[in-house]
Amino acid sequence: MKNKSLSIPYVVWMAFFVVAPLVLIVAYAFTARDGSVTLDNFNNMGVYFPAFYNSFALAAAATLLCILIGYPLAYFVSKESLLVRKVAMMLIMLPMWMNFLLRTYAWMSLLDDNGLINQFLRTVGVFDLVNALSGGNMTCLHMINTQGAIVLGMVYNFLPFMIMPIFSVIDKIDPRVIEAAQDLGADNAMVFRKVVFPLSLPGVLSGVTMVFIPSVSTFALSRLLGGGKTLLLGDLIEMQFLGNAYNPHLGSAIALVMMVIVLVCMAVMNRFGEGEEGVSVL
């Protein structure tokens, strides 16, 4: 059929660039260097528990922060006039047009012990004041090379992915549905709690997906903002392919385990949003 032939390029693309890599990863994960089938790669996984823990904990924290910042922002922007909405959305997208590394370097120079923020605090005399009060000897607010800095980097880089889907869902809520709730006796707080928020959950769900997944697998952030002190899965996997520890089999196994955990997380989340028309990754 004519329509069917149109889909051939996509099928080929999917086969080569989606299915084939997955098969390769699975194949690598279950083999040793000499090519024999083995589960050794998984048996040693326990050693890397801290990396798993750090990755998922930091990604979860970043996702939560993105919801806390992004939801109110999306909500209030959606109430504004068309012009304000357009400008606001452009401003939110604006940082995305700049290179990821550049943005992160900018944060490095902001957060450094002698960076712009500390210089500013020092100049206005905040540290002198604190020292005078506590009798301590504070010279700077230590921010760079902490887990907090990594989370900040994640939030800063991925926040637009949270705002956009929430905004578009709230924006599409039929105003008559809100009027119907008011008509039935709901004040503004109640309208939000019982109608707007539940109806916007699909947007939150896809926002969570779009923030959580890149956060879990990010690798440059921990080195640039975390000073390499916090080993994340992304870095661990990178090391197996490019670093001294060269071991693609172990790297594939880690990637596979990470993927399975992410899929399970998403499945659980989609269960919560069942019946909603959310974006499902499964």
Binding site: E179, L184, V195
Partner: peptide, 28 residues
């Protein structure tokens, strides 16, 4: 305001709450 009036409205195109089932819509 509307929520304090002893009037209820049946809207054009119904404006039902799609996130709730029929019972909860009526019970709202």
């Amino acid at each position: 305001p509307p929520h304090k009036r002893k009037v209820n409205t049946v809207f054009q195109k119904y404006a039902l709450f799609t996130h709730l089932n029929i019972f909860e819509n009526v019970a709202f």
